[in-house]
Computed example of a mutant assay.
Amino acid sequence: MDNRLIERILQGDRSAFRSLYDEYFDYAMRTAKLVTKHEEWAKDAVQETFLRIYRNIWQYDRSKPFKPWFYCILLRECYRVMEREKKVVPLSEQLEKIGVEQKLPDVSVDVYEALQSLDDLYRIPLILKYLHDYSEKEIADMLDVNLNTLKSRLLKGREKMKKGLGGERYGTES
């Protein structure tokens, strides 16, 4: 990597950044596909890598080789994307977590609507717990409430969700 190209990027030359992109894109994609084992995740990781490079090029130490710095960022992005995607749970599993079982295959459940119908007191903890995967302790700290209070709100929120989703029609009402 030519330090003059980095200097041009630092001065805001978009064509210089485009040259850097053209030079590294294919190799970055191949690497990201190997790491993530998933083409779409690889695309996300590569896109985020170039965004981070563009925003943080000023942090690059020009006395060191560019390629290791670039791939260190790429690998971190691959790991971040893989971690994020691991947290994506199919809707059926989310329904099981809150105690709703779909026993009829033709029943459509509008989880978003049921969730949105809850008071913030119950809705926000459910979102943080089941959609963002925070621990109960983390949520209690975020909301500045006692851990037992939070557990109570989660329980009541799950019950209200179950009722809102029609759980009693399918034999899941306790």
Rank of each mutant, 00 (worst) to 15 (best):
N146W: 09
H132E: 15
N146T: 08
E101Y: 06
K97W: 07
F17P: 01
D141G: 00
Y27L: 14
V35N: 05
H132Q: 08
L121V: 09
P68R: 07
K43G: 11
N146L: 06
L150K: 05
I127C: 01
H38M: 04
A28C: 11
K86V: 04
R76F: 13
H38V: 02
S152T: 04
Y122S: 06
V109M: 15
Q11A: 08
Q11T: 07
T36I: 00
G12A: 08
Y54N: 11
D133R: 12
Y170A: 03
T149R: 04
A114C: 08
I98C: 02
G166T: 01
K129Y: 07
L104D: 13
Y170Q: 11
Q116D: 11
D26Q: 12
E136C: 05
R84G: 09
V88I: 14
L147T: 12
Y79A: 06
K129W: 00
F17H: 01
K162F: 00
R169S: 13
V46W: 02
E77Q: 13
L150M: 02
S92F: 01
V111Q: 03
G166C: 06
R169L: 13
S117D: 12
N148C: 00
R80I: 08
R62I: 01
D106P: 00
E101D: 09
A32G: 12
E136Y: 06
R169V: 03
F25C: 10
R84W: 01
V145I: 08
Y134V: 07
A140D: 05
K97M: 11
Q59A: 06
P65F: 09
D144L: 11
P90F: 07
L121S: 10
K103P: 08
E85G: 05
R18P: 02
L104R: 09
L91I: 13
K137M: 05
L126V: 14
M161A: 04
D119R: 15
